[in-house]
Design a protein around this nucleic acid. Structure first.
Lengths: 350, 350
DNA sequence: TTGTAGGCGTTATCAG
DNA sequence: CTGATAACGCCTACAA
């Protein structure tokens, strides 16, 4: 029998108190469970709240209490399929402890990244999670003085208010390359990520290391520059061919790059994996639906997101943070294929 | 020469005023450009702000001013590739007018949707944009009394505080089906979306309508239920075959469904488009990188996001809202192919 | 042009 | 257990 009349939007705690015949502090106590209150008053207040459809003003509450129950989450692009699962993990992980994530994008731009952080501070978030920050360590330490800061995808000197969770990109890239080697490939091309990305560099190093482990020289001629985007992979693959590079497999610094490379192969009438083997990195949700399903290095991003959520909450509560490093695993699917050892070395797909 | 000492986190406007030798209101005025101030004081204040690295407390400001410059954005899943571009469009569109989006997911769950809206109200957002709400119209109208509400992907009775922007799903589906018909296909299967989604129903109707326009009966046997996800498309396609349905083309209610269907075709050794033509809906960013690139109906989601951002700001400013309906366009790529009329009617790919 | 004072809606500290 | 009362940090008349 609750009337759905045109309720004057903003009911305040004080009005509830008056309606219930108690003092504002009592209402506040009931709202927060701060102290025991007589059942009778409790009930009166609850009824008033229901009747007026009262909702505490979060702003006022935060101002008074000094906490906002908000976590700033800085991502490079909210729209990247790569970050999507991370965000979901974070959102889910923050749900139960009662925090709200504030997602913003820096668009791979250091200046934006700074302004977003300033915004977080101005909004008095209780903590910040950064996905792939480009800021230098001193800056990060500076920000961590305002609120606990957790940086994903980097490894930093940690403190009580600064933590990081790194992924073993090097290992992942090494495994992927090794897989190709085990299949008999000797000429493995690599399409790199942005040269200024820490993880892109690690992946390149992993590729290189695996090659050297196998006694195969690292050949610059088989490496092309990509940009982590489909278009970059497409173009890089094109350049590889234009340059007459010889290879039987291509390892791409990330899945999006692999998608682009795949398209170029398709355009040139080359079959995957019959003519060329292809490996990606990230294991985006759609990668297992490519034709054929892409062999790639899986990053458990959703789980990492949850871990991060859990970690930042622990930091806020001044509890010890437990962030064990996450390992990446190769998902062997159908874009790689064993090469017959009899094939003449130096065989070019061209 | 700014010292980066361990600054006591929270400098207040009052401290700035004291340091600059002026009153708090003067500082406030300078901060907001509310009134002219003597150049000398202006400078003194600016210096103090810089020196103390002062950042106004957004909470206090909002509480006092009654506006938060925040827009609640309710999406079904932050992590869906489908919503990604919308979010980006909204974020970009909100940037310039100075609003911050607050992204949350309802996970396709009405209960969550309600609680998110409550949260928005509690946070006193200045406006709300909903992507595909499942709430009924009365509820939406109710919420719109708290703050301007803009619903995307639905068509509603509009008012000064409630607007909607619908997409012509029916038209899009009709065009797609017609395209297939023009290519000579007569047996066109359809993998539908969730039966309780307005747009899924519209797409089914568009398919049906095109068939009837062409004088071809709508055949339930060629329709399978999907769920807008890859796995659903995969399974639906499988069922289509298991049931022995006969078709030369498949139209999927969305791209993710098409991805799944594509995989099933691949598994069965059927070529696209040589054996079966395939059409999707949405034009996700990766669709043009499928093998072969997917023919699909494009929704200009990024642009819609920007439009929505612009629209909600107009509503907040009590300006007339201009939301012209958005049309969808067929992107003819390479998963569809003209069928030779000579092929015996009733030809089954099996 | 500038300062004073009151208020925004809650929480939190103290008596009682 | 409960009610005043003072913050929280800023904005905005109002007055000077």
């Amino acid at each position: 029998m609750i009337e759905d009349a045109v309720n004057p939007p903003n009911v305040t705690l004080e009005e509830i108190a008056r309606a219930a015949g108690v003092s504002p502090s009592t209402v506040s106590r009931i709202l927060n469970g701060t102290a025991r209150v007589l059942p009778a008053k409790q009930k009166a207040v609850e009824q008033a709240i229901a009747r007026f459809n009262y909702r505490p003003n979060v702003l006022a509450r935060s101002l008074a209490s000094g906490k906002t129950d908000t976590i700033g989450v800085l991502t490079q692009t909210v729209s990247s399929p790569f970050y999507a699962e991370w965000l979901r993990g974070i959102e889910d992980g923050l749900q139960e402890p009662g925090f709200t994530p504030l997602f913003v994008s820096s668009r791979w731009n250091v200046k934006d990244e700074v302004s977003r952080m300033e915004q977080f501070i101005a909004r008095r978030v209780d903590g910040v999670i950064m996905l792939h920050s480009q800021l230098d360590e001193p800056s990060l330490i500076g920000y961590s003085r305002h609120a606990p800061l957790l940086v994903l995808g980097r490894s930093l000197q940690i403190s009580a208010s600064l933590a990081s969770l790194a992924l073993d990109n090097l290992q992942g890239a090494r495994d992927a390359t090794r897989h190709l080697l085990e299949q008999g490939h000797r000429e493995i091309a690599f399409i790199a990520g942005p040269p200024d990305h820490e993880d892109a560099i690690e992946r390149l190093n992993g590729y290189r290391m695996a090659l050297e482990d196998a006694g195969i020289g690292f050949d610059v001629d088989r490496v092309e520059q990509g940009d982590y985007l489909e278009t970059g992979g497409e173009a890089a693959m094109e350049r590889l061919f234009a340059r007459g590079a010889s290879f039987s497999a291509v390892f791409c610094a990330n899945d999006q790059t692999a998608y682009g490379a795949r398209l170029t192969l398709f355009r040139r009438g080359l079959r995957v994996p019959e003519d060329i083997s292809l490996v990606g990195f990230d294991d985006l949700p759609t990668s297992s639906y490519m034709t054929p399903p892409l062999t790639t290095v899986r990053q458990p991003t959703y789980e990492i997101g949850r871990l991060a959520a859990q970690g930042i909450v622990q930091m806020i509560r001044r509890q010890p943070v437990t962030l064990s490093p996450v390992s990446l695993t190769l998902m062997t699917r159908e874009t790689t294929r064993r090469i017959v050892p009899s094939s003449r070395p130096g065989d070019s797909p061209l």
